[in-house]
Design a protein around this nucleic acid. Structure first.
Lengths: 335, 335
DNA sequence: CTGAAAGCGCTTACAG
DNA sequence: CTGAAAGCGCTTACAG
């Protein structure tokens, strides 16, 4: 593979000049530039990014850290990633998905030393060891999600407290007074979004003077189906359900149907943190609170890029609520 | 950040010795090693992978190229990735997901020069410009999927011809003589798996003397639903459907139900290339031909690692059929 | 067992 | 506008 030195010799210039042409860093006379460009073409030259990275101390690559080996990448997570990648590309960076988990060792080895310029964290826990690892090692990072106390740290997150509250209020407005809440079982209990949604649910139920019922469910359609099948028997008084478990939602409706529970006549269901794609999977189409995945992905990219380009600016901190999208799974409770 | 030079000074040794300790490349006396290790700890030393990459000419990083910006990462694709990443990790490599598409420019810039040691291609087309780009640039690669003529190239792929044929035979064995085929619309027509499954379907239908009916459908549950709703009207003679469109499958069943078509009494449905996860989404649970995603991901990692470690060996080429998993969407046609 | 030194392929002040 | 040279942080023959 041709190097800059080869090109320089071929064109009869210094390698500095080649570098200027390749990067457009400095003005070069037309004649010289043409000679260099010809030489590059003749030799099939392509700049070696590793050499450049070492000299410059940066790579223009951002890593999105998602623990795929521990947790399945949901459709919504894919939306975050795709949108963040698109935004990064617009701004001259590459975004890659690095499937490393809570394995702190691995994190700072990768993140330091300029293999990547910065990282975006997903699946952030209330107390997240990765955050301190990155901070200690001085690796620029931003979170999609946030820790218990994210003050001073760049993040973009779903406003889960507001979203859960609004979900509740939508059902309460229809007259529901016994609204159960289904969450993801097997997720670390201190996962930020889950934890915040659960507290908000408890608070708003209490504020209404309604009972709070928290029901765990594994993140899989089959688990949803089993839960749906026994739901009426286990929770005869519930007239509505809020569900923060995208993977289980379709199965839950199926299970209900098989048990003779009609949705929404017998039970209203509202999926919290879902997408058009997943909502359209179910029958009837799910009423849901839409996760602002594309918006957050884009903002997540902006958040980390701001750390890189304007490190003195206050960190970007943004909270976006889910938006209510009516489907066909909500109605007033039977009298 | 401390460098090897800092550590060397601190420990009173040469930086070569530090390198030997860090990498375990050569034996170092216990006493010396301890001094070096202490110095590393004191200074919080972490080896800079970019420097190492430049010196060694490799990074131990493999990139999985998936055009996320053009095509949604399906649950099945996530399985490939996760499994390949796990396997790579076992063998001392890191696997990252690089969301670049058919953008040939971008590919070889990234792939050459040792930012990654090799790449795995997904979503391979019959004629794929990326393949020639990588070959020209001498970038080690392997395909999950394959081009029209992959001879001499490393690949692992679904044996779609066999799988489609078997799908057909399962339905034919029940007595079906009019089996329609639903494929993904909007996918480049020369996508390998799609193209091969379609030809196999045509051939096997012809061999049976049955009519072949090819029906396009966008890759989204809503499109599936619309297709299901008008299916009986458009194709009154079909008694069974093979469907290679995971995203549309759940919606398709829903659409059928709303149009009064009972599955499997009125119409049998068999999903080709699906997963337990997606099959469990539908009601009734889908009968499907299971994509060997985890197996192929693992083999895909092996295929590229073999190019890197044993470049003289003949390339790994492996074809795995989908396995039939009975669900509740197939029955004999009505008399 | 350890060290001095060249080299990996670039970038970037500094001169001219 | 262009070049000579130092340097980014490592690795690895080659000596001793």
């Amino acid at each position: 593979m041709a190097t800059m030195r080869d090109v320089a010799e071929h064109a009869g210039v210094s390698i500095a000049t080649v570098s200027f042409v390749v990067n457009g860093t400095k003005h070069v006379t037309d004649g010289t530039r043409e000679r260099v460009e010809t030489a590059m073409r003749d030799l099939g030259f392509r700049r070696n990014p590793v050499g450049a990275a070492l000299a410059k101390g940066r790579t223009s690559i951002i890593a999105l850290l998602f623990p795929t080996l521990e947790r399945t990448l949901s459709h919504t997570a894919v939306e975050f990633f795709t949108s963040a990648a698109r935004r990064a590309r617009e701004r001259g960076y590459d975004l890659i998905l690095w499937p490393i988990g809570s394995d702190v060792e691995h994190i700072d080895v990768l993140a330091r030393g300029g293999l990547v310029d910065g990282v975006i964290l997903m699946e952030v826990k209330l107390a997240d060891p990765r955050v301190s690892a990155l901070a200690t090692n001085n690796v620029p990072f931003a979170m999609i999600g946030r820790t218990a106390d994210p003050s001073g740290l760049p993040y973009v997150d779903i406003d889960m407290a507001t979203s859960a509250r609004e979900a509740y209020e939508h059902l309460a407005a229809l007259g529901h007074r016994n609204i159960a809440y289904i969450y993801s079982e097997g997720v670390k209990y201190d996962h930020g979004a889950d934890a915040r949604a659960r507290s908000a649910y408890r608070e708003v139920a209490a504020a209404h003077g309604d009972p709070a019922t928290l029901i765990p469910c594994l993140e899989h359609p089959t688990a949803g189906r089993e839960l749906g099948a026994r739901f009426a028997a286990d929770h005869p008084d519930a007239t509505a359900v809020i569900l923060l478990n995208e993977h289980a939602a379709p199965g839950f409706l199926t299970g209900l149907a098989h048990a003779g529970v009609r949705v929404p006549e017998d039970l209203s269901v509202l999926s919290l943190g879902s997408s058009d794609y997943m909502a359209a999977m179910t029958d009837p189409p799910m009423s849901y609170m839409r996760t602002p995945g594309p918006e957050l992905g884009r903002l997540g990219a902006d958040a980390i890029l701001q750390r890189l380009t304007e490190p003195e600016d206050p960190p970007l901190q943004e909270l976006l609520p889910c938006e209510y999208v009516p489907g066909a799974t909500m109605a007033a409770p039977r009298a």
